[in-house]
Design a protein around this nucleic acid. Structure first.
Lengths: 327, 327
DNA sequence: GGACACTATGACAACGTTGTCTCCTGCGGG
DNA sequence: CCCGCAGGAGACAACGTTGTCATAGTGTCC
């Protein structure tokens, strides 16, 4: 900046005025300054600016499990859209479902003085956030609630969605329904399992623990579960996939099975309608999730001091075929 | 920081020494300082630190067309992985295939003094980058080359891949092959079209322009093209989808067609193997693309001054069924 | 002609850090 | 007893900006 000032023959403050479009600069002077800026390729240092102004940094942080997972990337996109409309940039990070990594990312973002943080929490302990939140960094939890603090949260109706899935299968005559879920440490997985149990109760189906398999989904783990649950005289005639990754592994495991059970997945996914049979899912609007969370965050950024809010977005069952086959 | 200093009864410089793990601080003093830090919830301001040290900001920028597209989110993930290994954070942005937006994002990132930029360029003019690059911000182009400057670039073998696709179809007896591509303004689309033409020549097929349809893929545009190209006496018996989005729309358009042509897609996608028939694709390793680009960028960040490099990653045809049906 | 308003500009401090230099204290060796 | 040296700590400037205040010049009005 001082280089520009020297070249234009003005003071550094005048350069500042020009780059900030402040009034009270003579057009001729402004033009000289602009020319100097152009010539030197000057670009103002936003870091220094933010430091001096004590203002916001114009960035927000987004932490998800894995930015490469289509579910989270759609979320990322929705968040980015809102952030852009508020003139903010987005710093992203993948926690890899590891609470230490989550913490590290959050604190790193705080040290960078992001204006706010959106997080799909991996851990259950968020006490470390208290000082940051007290210091004025708003935090909104997405898809899963905070572990041990009260904070803004946006969720989907995991319970209701899974109940709906069970009911749908029951209405098509299924009495033995299996449930394949992610690790029960994950809120959504636990909640959906709860919904499964509740759904069984409501539909007069006796809840059978031997038809439940929970755990981080891998091709092998899901394949084994399929063998175990869908074989034998007491085999399940229908199966619910607890999330999109379970669903993918399940579909692959079933591809070469002789007898295909009815199936409903939680989370919609691309091409679900083109499979054979098309996959019935409990769908929810991931964009809306990101949208709602980001809107809430920016309300906080702009000073909203109301009590922490908890938003639960609706889900709806999309019947495509796989869930409508008889036992 | 001065609050911490006051509380601990030391100078602000000593606090600095403690948070930087500098030697020559008495253990007792350090402990007092740590306690004060804990009590006040102090977190050092990285912006101020970077300003003072004149060092790197510890961030890199990544600009893609759409962070929500699985192709780019996988890229994002690969980049993030390398960035993390170099202790950097990633700022992401979606250009939406708009060159003005691309420029805006790049300049914004530069103003934030990112250590380097990875960009899937939307535009063809990159002269605006020259001052930034001269000022020391390395830039690596991903998936598409820079328009009018020489710069590091990582591409995939679009030409070879499409030739391979045509050859594959020709070997299965197809003589009338259609090509559905994205807008020809996009480098990869143009390159693949060139590969299509070259593939026809090499396989003794007369290149028929009426079997080509280029343009931003939408369900309607692809649906119309399908009707036009796959109907009538001179209809194509096989079709090549120029990228993953064309492929998805194409599959949907073909789902209810009476006669299904053979098909090969460029870009692999999840569940391609589970469709009926499974989709043959020209696959490439998106992670490797991000990996290579990020590695190259960090080499530059760390001072590599060698001439700009151009890396072309290989592709390979994955035969799954849809490309092996006879005319 | 002096008080006043207004325009255009600059000097200087401050944002929160850290690098450099200086200072103080205690200790061991001559 | 004095000197030098090392460990521990602080004063101060500087990073690149911008907010505040001051200043000089130019009309304008009574």
């Amino acid at each position: 900046m001082s280089d520009v000032a020297r070249l234009a023959g003005v003071s550094i403050k005048t350069v500042s005025r020009v780059v900030n479009d402040e009034p009270a600069v003579h057009p001729d002077t402004a033009e000289r300054v602009m020319a100097a800026i152009e010539q030197l390729g000057f670009r103002r240092n936003l870091g220094a600016r933010n430091l001096r102004r004590g203002s916001t940094t114009g960035t927000i942080g987004l932490i998800v499990e894995d930015v490469g997972n289509p579910f989270y990337s759609e979320l990322n996109r929705a968040v980015e859209r809102i952030a852009t409309s508020f003139g903010r940039q987005v710093l992203t990070g993948s926690s890899e479902e590891n609470s230490d990594r989550e913490r590290e990312l959050v604190l790193e973002f705080c040290a960078r003085r992001v204006d706010g943080i959106l997080v799909v929490p991996a851990g259950l302990q968020h006490g470390y956030l208290v000082p940051e939140m007290r210091a004025g960094t708003p935090v909104v939890f997405i898809d899963r609630p905070a572990g041990d603090i009260v904070a803004d949260t946006v969720l989907v109706d995991n319970l209701g969605g899974t109940i709906e899935a069970v009911t749908h299968l029951a209405q098509h005559g299924h009495r033995r329904i299996a449930f394949l879920g992610d690790s029960p440490d994950i809120f959504t997985a636990a909640e959906r399992l709860r919904g499964f149990r509740e759904g069984c109760v409501r539909n007069g189906i006796s809840y059978d623990e031997s038809l439940v398999s929970m755990g981080t989904p891998t091709p092998d783990s899901v394949g084994d579960a399929v063998k175990r649950l869908l074989d034998g005289p007491d085999a399940a005639t229908a199966v619910i996939a607890g999330n999109n990754r379970v669903a993918v592994h399940l579909l692959r495991a079933l591809a070469h099975a002789e007898r295909r059970p009815a199936m409903v997945g939680f989370d919609d996914f691309e091409l679900a309608d083109l499979l054979n049979p098309p996959v019935t899912v409990v769908a929810h609007d991931v964009s809306a999730l990101g949208h709602a969370a980001a809107e809430l965050l920016f309300a906080r950024v702009q000073g909203d001091q109301s009590p922490p809010r908890k938003v639960v977005l609706p889900v709806h069952l999309v019947a495509r075929g796989s869930g409508e086959v008889a036992p």
